[in-house]
Design a binder for these strands. Structure first.
Lengths: 238, 238
DNA sequence: CGGTAATTTGATCCTCGTCAACCTGAGTGG
DNA sequence: CCACTCAGGTTGACGAGGATCAAATTACCG
């Protein structure tokens, strides 16, 4: 359980940009590795925030649960990404729950360790600010999508994002972790039924291929076209 | 135009928490006051980010404009609040436009001033982190609302927020700046028609009172009840 | 091979967006 | 001071987009 933390990962993490090897070693020593099986929690909405995490291996998702039990997925976390840091800096309890999507391991710095960290390496504060700023922008973009786009477009955007499809990805890409229709629905603000219908249609058209808990993008162009699709423009149907 | 900046406002601003009077004076001197008439812009989506602002007087709103011209309002800014700071710390152009809702004045610190500021007063970095963290939480909450609630509930939440209705506001409250049905629609992800119908109904019920560009909450309880209203038939799982 | 979770698919319902028309009141200029 | 103008607001009619309800069907697991 208490294996060593891969310092290569820390060196690549944006949070520790500008910090040298020797210091990284000490930073690594201040963390504890925590592992969770698929479905396990790193922290739970409402609990007091006592640490921040950096995902080492696996995949995590941050979900909010409403009072009536609906789940909304705020983001997916890939290895090297920081999560759970916001409430450490701005106070309050965890605003959401962090779930392991597959068996996962994260480095965990306690609040005390975090205080020492930021005192010794002020550049971490600046890095954290940049990361959180980036997060604001992403969430604002998702918010705009939710407010202005139809479900089909939002699902298309989500797939492109989850499969890491960039500008130039002529070949196909696939989501490299298990994901259900329900998961996609919680990420895009719709229901699993609608997601199922949409994916079935796309599979018919040959732009994607999907099996249980699995989606592969065959024609990124096609998906991108759907994502960009404008509203029925002008007065069309009558 | 180049009046002195009210240092009392700076002292009260969360960004400068922990900074003493003498230093505040120097910080104030690093800023320039900029005024905009109602409808004017402090900065515009897509332009390079060259400064951050603190609203001194008036009211501003941050809007994103989609490629097909729809507007989405991300937030309203009250005096004492910082805006436009995120891209200074995480790079990139302005992700949105800042509009003056009424004739407004803001203090503006250039990028160079900001660099000196954070170098001389590192506590500003920590304060900025807390502020941006708070913003993340707010947007995430709005996102969850948009994903899970019906229009009527979202409008109710928005009115309570805009009118500064807190837990204990037995008396009425009102939105103290001009706001149209269209503005409320852009804030809640709906259309002015739907907002108009909703406000008309509420006025019938006597929970609010509204005139052109103006909304007053008569019975906060009533509005809060609507905001909390569960979907017909609670099927609360979990 | 059952058993269960994920998925598909049909049928129906309902919220809310769209279209259209009209009303209202605050300026504005003659 | 009044007719004009026009942005803001109201209201009705209609139906598209999805949510909801209801079964099946399929895939994986022990």
């Amino acid at each position: 359980m208490a294996r060593a933390i891969d310092e290569g990962l820390l060196a690549a993490a944006r949070l520790f940009a500008g910090i040298g090897g020797a210091e990284l070693h000490r930073i690594a020593e201040m963390a504890r590795l925590v592992s969770r099986p698929a479905g396990g929690e790193f922290f739970s909405q409402g609990d007091p925030a006592t640490a921040f995490f950096l995902l080492v291996e696996g995949r995590a998702r941050i979900v909010q649960i409403t009072s009536d039990g609906q789940q909304v997925t705020l983001r997916y976390i890939a290895p090297g990404e920081v999560f759970g840091a916001v409430p450490l800096f701005s106070g309050g309890p965890w605003p959401a729950t962090a779930l392991a999507v597959v068996d996962s391991t994260a480095a965990r710095w306690s609040r005390e360790a975090t205080d020492r960290l930021t005192a010794q390496y002020p550049v971490i504060l600046a890095n954290a600010l940049a990361i959180v700023g980036e997060r604001v922008r992403e969430i604002e973009d998702r918010y705009r999508e939710l407010a202005t786009e139809r479900v089909e477009q939002r699902v298309a955007h989500a797939l492109l994002h989850l499969a890491n499809v960039t500008e130039k990805s002529p070949a196909g890409a696939e989501i490299d972790f298990p994901i259900s229709r329900q998961d996609i629905a919680e990420l895009t603000g719709t229901t699993l039924h609608t997601v199922s219908r949409i994916l079935s249609a796309w599979e018919q058209q040959g732009v994607i291929e999907s099996r249980r808990m699995h989606v592969r993008i065959l024609r990124p162009e096609g998906v991108r076209a759907i994502a960009a699709e404008a509203r029925p423009e002008g007065r069309s149907r009558l």
